[in-house]
């Protein structure tokens, strides 16, 4: 496809574990489905990977009521981790990923440490190359947020998953914290190979209409995503970069080529695209082509050189 220049290797220098990507552009969890849902819109060979919808042990139906609330330059979601569950994923979704040769990160979430360990074991048994652990989902009443915001429990959780899983281990961090550096350090020390960030920010959407002498009110509390969160994401990625050596997959409001450059300067080694897929369903492959064109035109040999130039010049 002519995108050889975009080949990206995420490598944990300490353990030498690595993940090879065709391009540094990944479809973010919860916005890209389980496998080939976007194939009408993109060439599956023209982007790095998909991160699957967050998978739990059991099938989940998610939250009742309104799940999407639009805000200026973003949206609040409270899907509540609706997913098919790990068994159905392995039986129905994984074969399609393999048959169509789609590179993927298995995104997992749980309510207890035990859940995460079980999911890690299943990933190991099924020879899944990369695991992205969501410890930061703000939409479920109990569970993952607690692990995600406490360095000690996050260290413990990462260590336990690491013990059961030999593949490339990515931990996805929550931005809903005052000390992202402590969380990043805990994850690195716990044995993760890579950090992805950020998950959605906590947000509250309120809509008030005045109809017939009455205020009609609607409130939706959930996770905020989209271009409005980009400055927060850049800050968080930069903080994480200062705290750890392992690679960072950055996300939060990415929607154009310049955003990729900005995140590289902040410390990113690869990218995920979330909300923007809803508006431009071809964006993951389009950005790869745009990046490739830019590099060709300006004589950047490969993605490593481009990164080096942005950071050092």
């Amino acid at each position: 496809m002519g995108l050889e220049k975009l080949k990206t290797v995420l490598k944990n220098e300490r353990t030498s574990k690595s993940l090879e990507l065709k391009t540094p552009i990944i479809g973010a969890s919860g916005t890209y489905g389980y496998n080939s849902e976007f194939e009408d819109f993109i060439d599956l060979n023209c982007f790095g990977a998909i991160s699957t919808k967050g998978i739990t042990i059991e099938k989940r139906l998610g939250n009742d009521g309104d799940r999407i609330f639009e805000v200026q330059n973003g949206l609040i979601n409270r899907i509540g981790l609706e997913n098919v569950g790990i068994n159905a994923f392995i039986k129905e979704k994984l074969p399609v990923l393999r048959q169509k040769n789609i590179d993927f990160l298995l995104n997992i979430a749980g309510s207890t440490i035990d859940d995460y360990e079980k999911l890690a074991i299943i990933a190991q048994e099924n020879d899944i190359k990369a695991l992205e652990v969501n410890v930061s989902c703000p939409n479920v009443k109990q569970g993952c947020l607690e692990f995600g915001l406490n360095p000690n429990s996050l260290f413990e959780l990462t260590r336990k998953i690491r013990r059961n899983y030999d593949g490339f281990l990515i931990v996805k961090l929550s931005p809903n914290t005052s000390d992202i550096k402590a969380l990043a350090t805990a994850v690195e020390q716990g044995g993760a190979d890579c950090i992805s960030a950020i998950n959605t920010l906590r947000g509250l959407g309120i809509k008030i209409d005045y109809v017939g002498n009455k205020f009609l009110k609607k409130t939706v509390q959930g996770g905020l995503s989209g271009t409005c969160i980009k400055p927060v994401a850049l800050y968080m990625v930069n903080q994480i970069r200062q705290a750890v050596k392992i690679p960072i997959i950055a996300m939060g409001g990415i929607s154009k080529l310049d955003d990729l450059f900005e995140f590289i300067l902040a410390g990113a080694d690869a990218f995920q695209i979330g909300t923007a897929n809803f508006i431009y369903p071809s964006i993951c492959s389009n950005l790869a082509f745009e990046l490739n064109d830019f590099m060709t035109k300006n004589n950047f040999k490969d993605f490593e050189h481009l990164k080096g130039a942005i950071i050092n010049e």
């Binding site: 489905g33 919808k53 799940r67 999407i68 979601n77 897929n277 809803f278 369903p281």
Partner: peptide
């Protein structure tokens, strides 16, 4: 239903 992706992936319009 209010939709985000309109192609079945986001589970917003259930």
């Amino acid at each position: 239903r209010v939709m985000a992706c309109s192609i079945g992936v986001c589970r917003g319009c259930i």
